[in-house]
Design a protein around this nucleic acid. Sequence first.
DNA 1: CTTATAATTGATTGATGAGTCAATCAAGAA
DNA 2: TTCTTGATTGACTCATCAATCAATTATAAG
Lengths: 190, 190
Amino acid sequence: MEPIRRRALIDATIIAIGEHGALDVTMADIAGRAGVSAALAHHYFGGKDDLLFATMRHILAELGLEVRTAVHGLSGADRVRAVIQVNLSQGQFRPEIIAAWLAFYVEARRNAALGRLFRIYVRRLHSDLLSGLTHLPRAGAVRTARGIAALIDGLYLRRALGEGAADSMAAIDLVEDYLDTALARSARRA
Amino acid sequence: MEPIRRRALIDATIIAIGEHGALDVTMADIAGRAGVSAALAHHYFGGKDDLLFATMRHILAELGLEVRTAVHGLSGADRVRAVIQVNLSQGQFRPEIIAAWLAFYVEARRNAALGRLFRIYVRRLHSDLLSGLTHLPRAGAVRTARGIAALIDGLYLRRALGEGAADSMAAIDLVEDYLDTALARSARRA
DNA sequence: CTTATAATTGATTGATGAGTCAATCAAGAA
DNA sequence: TTCTTGATTGACTCATCAATCAATTATAAG
């Protein structure tokens, strides 16, 4: 039962946060969605913080897996494009995922464990991007990677707010455009 | 007394949210920082939501004033640069301001009034940027404005998480670079 | 001095929600 | 069947906090 319950509770947590828009969902709400009692959620996860942590780790792990799959065998600009596409794919761009993401981002300022999780994600994204920008001079590559990462996050944020936000395709377009420009400029200079 | 207390309470709210990192600060905490009782905060603001709303409106009003001042008399790329510089100035880039900003962003998903406030800000930023990009073709201007806005928000987000985030100057540099590239590309094409 | 008005608070209420626990229930092993 | 172990829950406790209110104090006007 344990793995089934854990998974169901994590899924329920994502949905609950997505609907609620913040982390102040109750254990009873989450447990209810998963079809169990609040006491059971405590039994398997220990406490609310642990459940939230496990949920965020799950989201990041899924994203990480997607990235690694997409990137496999690619190099150079194609590799960067793959990273961009995964990060802004419909799957990652779902409102409830973004809401959870954002809520966790806020929480990460207080929860040391969550903060660590996010820093790992940030670093991984950065190095994934850098590894596809090797033909750029080091400084330019770092700057481009930072710009892409900021763009991705910014587009997430807008999406979270709703209204007039770019959809998945438009967002990917915008970031790839940024990448192409950076590459073109570098080529022109060489 | 009223204006003094209101101002003190709003300032205290910003500090409290900044330190706490989220909106779950208590009225007692805020009131304490402002040197009054929690009951008084209720007296002047009606309720916690109203105080939070007033606080966010205050932050946005200050930013709006700064932008309008900076932009005054400028046009074209200079105008855009001014908007960028204000949005990423040290004042706006203070950790407690960013923390408040981010926390409110999350809350805006649930609180209709807050959501409206943010949408006004988003639209104003967009039109401020557009008004400095008139020499670009319309479609390109819109896209560039969106990109700049996303970059600004993304850099905010990174800053909120701390660790390795760009400082005010580096952030401005990055976004201005984006602007220059967009302008240069447009000029080359013409 | 008196009175009205605003400022201010301590004490209280009521609601909410995390976490605990002792008690059932189910299922497989001996 | 009996025992053991894990699954499961309802009921309870405890803490926190927003909101209220009646009471007190200060201020200013007449």
